[in-house]
Amino acid sequence: MIQVEGLTKDYGLRRAIDGISFHASKGEILGFLGPNGAGKTTTMRILTGYMPPTSGKASVAGYDVIERSLEVRRRVGYLPETVPLYPDMTVFEYLKFMADLRHLSQVEDKVDDVLELVHMEDRADGYIANLSKGMRQRVGLAQALLHQPEVLILDEPTIGLDPAQIHEVRDLIQDLGRERTILLSTHILSEAQQVCNRVLIINKGKIVAEDSPENLRSRIAGSQRFRLAVLGETEGLEKIIRDVPGIKTVAANDRSVFEFETTPGQDVRPLVSRAVVSAGYDLVELYPIGLSLEEIFLQLTRDEPRAPEMAEVDDLLNTALDEQLDQPEEDASELKG
């Protein structure tokens, strides 16, 4: 359904994407995971016919994106990163306008259908200017679904939504993905793992890893980092933590905040909390922390020139995946002590 070969795009001197290749077949939800500026949006813009690549080939739904751009655009539903809405139109007017541009018949029924799909039936006559960010996101999604496209390209579809809406949109995407091809980008690892059949990790215009979420999950092991905070006096606390078996490193981050890393495979949090409390300190926070996605990729690419053994990259990735997984929405604040 989506076929990309050696796609490259330069903006002046800057190379936004650098010879990437991938494919997605029918019924597949392909996740595009990477930090901001990695080239996700650029790739999507090429696939939707917004702009041509500098070199390389891409086809969507069997049509070349340059040669048969209009055919591609007829078959793709696209939700850009900044949701393109006309604030001075009502939701209904906007969707009707888009449906007319796509030459759909029974426009009113189709608009009603997509509004129901994104749970916006009751706001059809409201002006887009008065909608919240989450609602705008859903109107944008409705627009992408109007013509029941074979291929859906969604650029950060859950950004700006509240947790309940995120859950809803993810469910919706999974539903839609059963009979369509979906390419979605995100910078949230857990989202990619939850929703996608396959994940592409992209950084600085290159695909650095590709795997199924199951494999990513199975590779999760490795060391973990935690942050710990106490109230009041911290004299001698660093040593107490260091003496707990399984602790690799401890660093005082602040006067009352410590970060420590543990050896893989064992959960030392009960031991640490017990040690801290029994030594008379007031433990108020103990929670896992992770590298941000940007940091992970920085490290991955910094290692690149000297060609690391795969194990090293894997280890780094695993650490990152682990930490990311442990802190989705609720931010895992475990209080012990």
């Binding site: 393109p84 006309y86 796509r102 030459h103």
Partner: peptide
């Protein structure tokens, strides 16, 4: 300015 050009240029419109 409001980013809707992307919408029109990716719609099946010449």
């Amino acid at each position: 300015r409001q980013g809707t050009l992307e919408l029109l240029l990716t719609a099946p419109v010449r």
